[in-house]
């Protein structure tokens, strides 16, 4: 038996952890771009990373380190890494009885470290890379601990569902920014950085070799069935978890979730290369974005906000 409120919180633990990890990776790209000072391509990649974070571009401006520090440690900024981790932890704290001690301790420790060692922006440049490495490492550890210590029941599924839904939305955002530029403007370097933003360089090389043309990279990031940050992989996972939550409900009550998820999965499974190139590609991304947001809504009304209608066991969509 899983309380609706608990499922809701676990869903958001998954979401916020994924968001924090993604933000770290984008900030990392920005910082390493700064090392190649003067390279226009590097600067443009950094601008894209910042845009994906919803932040103003950093490079070459005074105060850019402050901005990066703010995006990492700020307690006021809702989009900072700290805020995402704090919210993940707050949600975990609300459901402390539902998660394992190992998971809680790891997340709690990460939270306290971010909280207690923000330092100042002056010293940030020198230690930024290590900070991001550590936070990403900790978040990977949280994932591993969840996988290895938490029962793979309803709670685990809602947490995973939140993570994959968040991931799909983050990937869509990164791809949209790259594909919005006119063909040829992103360039080989730009697409390499795009892969790095999604942690996909090595898996890409293994499948596609060092061929960083736009259609090859987008084909991989949208349609690869095995890479864990491709949209198709996300959609497959979302569907797996959605089919296995709230199974006590009547099929009719889960219909909206199942239909939405099934359509998205099928769309990506049967898409062809021509669906992801050119104008079609942006169209497909818009479809995925709409499906993800609708799915989020469907999950909320089906599982999280239940009210009484007729006999017990009836949920209202």
């Amino acid at each position: 038996m899983m309380l609706s409120r608990v499922a809701d919180s676990l869903f958001w633990v998954g979401r916020y952890c994924e968001r924090a990890e993604h933000a770290c990776r984008l900030l990392q790209i920005t910082f390493s771009a700064g090392l190649e000072a003067g390279s226009q391509e590097a600067e443009r990649a950094a601008v894209r990373a910042m845009t994906a974070l919803g932040a103003p571009p950093l490079i070459g401006q005074s105060g850019s380190i402050e901005e990066a520090w703010r995006l990492t440690f700020s307690r006021e900024d809702a989009d900072s890494v700290y805020s995402s981790v704090a919210r993940a932890r707050e949600n975990a704290r609300q459901v402390r009885d539902q998660i394992t001690t190992e998971m809680w301790e790891r997340l709690n420790r990460l939270y306290f470290r971010l909280r207690e060692t923000p330092g100042t922006s002056d010293t940030f440049a020198a230690r930024a890379d290590r900070v991001f490495q550590e936070v990403i490492g900790d978040l990977h550890a949280v994932k591993g601990i969840v996988e290895g210590t938490m029962s793979h029941g309803e709670g685990f599924r809602f947490l995973s569902l939140g993570r994959m839904l968040e991931r799909a939305q983050l990937v869509v955002r990164v791809l949209e920014i790259h594909m919005a530029e006119p063909p040829g403007s992103v360039g080989e370097h730009g697409w390499m950085q795009c892969l790095r933003m999604l942690c996909g360089m090595e898996p890409f090389l293994r499948v596609k070799t060092a061929d960083f043309r736009r259609e090859v990279v987008t084909d991989f990031l949208v349609l690869d069935p095995e890479f864990p940050r491709s949209l198709r992989f996300c959609a497959d996972e979302i569907d797996v978890f959605i089919q296995r939550v709230g199974v006590g409900l009547a099929a009719a009550e889960r219909a909206r979730c199942l239909r939405r998820s099934g359509l998205l999965k099928a769309r990506l499974e049967f898409a062809t290369l021509s669906d992801v190139t050119g104008r079609n590609g942006r169209q497909l991304l818009a479809e995925v974005a709409a499906a993800a947001s609708d799915l989020n809504d469907a999950v909320r009304t089906t599982f999280f906000t239940i009210s009484f209608q007729g006999a017990p066991g009836t949920a209202v969509a």
Binding site: M1, M2, L3, S4, R5, A7, E154, F158, V245, G246, V247, G248, L249, F303, I306, S307, F308, P312, G313, T314, A315
Partner: peptide, 16 residues
Amino acid sequence: MVHDNVVFVRTTSGLR
């Protein structure tokens, strides 16, 4: 929540 003087809890599989 209380319905007909019976207490229920909201779960992902409906009311218990």
